[in-house]
Simulated scan of single mutants.
Amino acid sequence: MVAVRGAGSARWAGTALAVLFPFVLAGCGVKEEEPVPARPVRVAAVSFTDAHAERSFTGIVVPRTEVQAGFRVGGRIATRLVEVGDRVKPGQVLARLDSTDLELALKGAEARLAQAEAQATQTAANLKRYTPLLASGTVSQAQFDQVKAASDAAAAQKREAESSLAIARNQRSYSALTLEQGGVITAVLADAGQTVSEGQTVLRIATDQGREVAIDVAEGDVARLTVGGAATIALWADGDIALTGTLREITPVADPASRTFRLRVTLPADAPDTVRLGLTARVSFPDANSPALALLPSAALFQQGDKPAVWVLAPSKDRVQLRPVEVAAYRPDGVAVKAGLKEGELVVTAGAHRLDANLRVRVWDGGLP
């Protein structure tokens, strides 16, 4: 009986240990490893396009020529006949000086000419009388030479007086400010009652010789542009206006402060009047020799040593691969890549520094994790 009870107890104890063993192991901290969830990544498809091969620059619409108009003589401005924004015609009087002093100077020149003419007439008559007397020996050669010299001097003084009178007449006409070219008044720098010096700027006028866009180009880009090349011009104020211009001028010397070159792009002659002076314009130059580029967000770039790289989604869609790339340009709107990627590949565009080639990933669908 005792043996039987012992065997039954042994069987019962073995069964209990088999049942309790997993719980004992769990109590000791031994757990099965749970799978690491796939990390969501945001991706974008690679797309190469020639549109990024254009070089675009921002500039200002300016007149091709601008005149700094001023009087050719000094004096007090009596009246100003134009205002800013007025359109003027060639030969139109824009302002006038007080011509009182100029009129007096003209009268003085006329009086000096009359005196010189009288003197020239008298000396010429004396010379005419002395000529036959010299031939008959009545007067000496020295006396005749003295009379002839006086006649020559009087004639020279007459010519000088005539020139002075012409100058005085011109100066009187200079009291009216006119231009040989038409245009638009862009600035008024002196007003009636103000005394101005000779040549001092009174009005600034944009002539009717055409409008242009002035842009500043860095020295790395100016070497790729040539005078006579075509350009596309778009206005920021009116996106519906698209014009085709021509690169007319490249300054030969860079600005010492900004180290940029000033370029002038001519607008077409039929440009609408809405293209006003001072408007902001964007000028684009096509580059047929530039390769197609893929524009990626700056956050997609990963530094592999000293070379740039990006994470590309593997064909299995659950891993990423680090791919070296060749960057064409770092732009305000992203990174322009010209080599290292294929059309249609998916590139991780955010969190590139947190990825690993062995990490499981999934394409983020935009929802919460």
Rank of each mutant, 00 (worst) to 15 (best):
Q115K: 07
V147T: 05
V46N: 04
V61Y: 07
F71L: 04
V61L: 01
I205V: 14
Q143M: 07
A257E: 10
R354N: 11
T123L: 07
A168K: 10
G108T: 08
A309D: 00
A118R: 04
E326G: 14
G8T: 00
T186D: 00
L81S: 06
R80T: 14
T65Q: 13
A135F: 12
A118K: 03
Q171E: 13
E32L: 12
N126S: 08
T251A: 09
G245P: 12
T349R: 13
K342R: 05
L165H: 05
V41K: 12
M1L: 05
L293N: 06
V217H: 10
R211D: 13
Q143W: 02
Q171Y: 04
L295N: 01
G6F: 01
E110V: 05
G278W: 13
V347W: 12
V222M: 03
A357W: 09
A231L: 11
T274C: 05
G367R: 11
K128A: 14
L165V: 07
A154Y: 06
A105L: 01
S56W: 12
G14R: 00
G182C: 09
S197R: 12
G193K: 05
R80C: 06
E343Q: 11
I60K: 09
F285Q: 09
A142T: 15
G351C: 03
L97F: 11
L203Y: 08
P63A: 00
A257N: 13
Q122Y: 15
T244R: 12
G8Y: 09
D208W: 08
F48P: 02
T100K: 08
R112L: 10
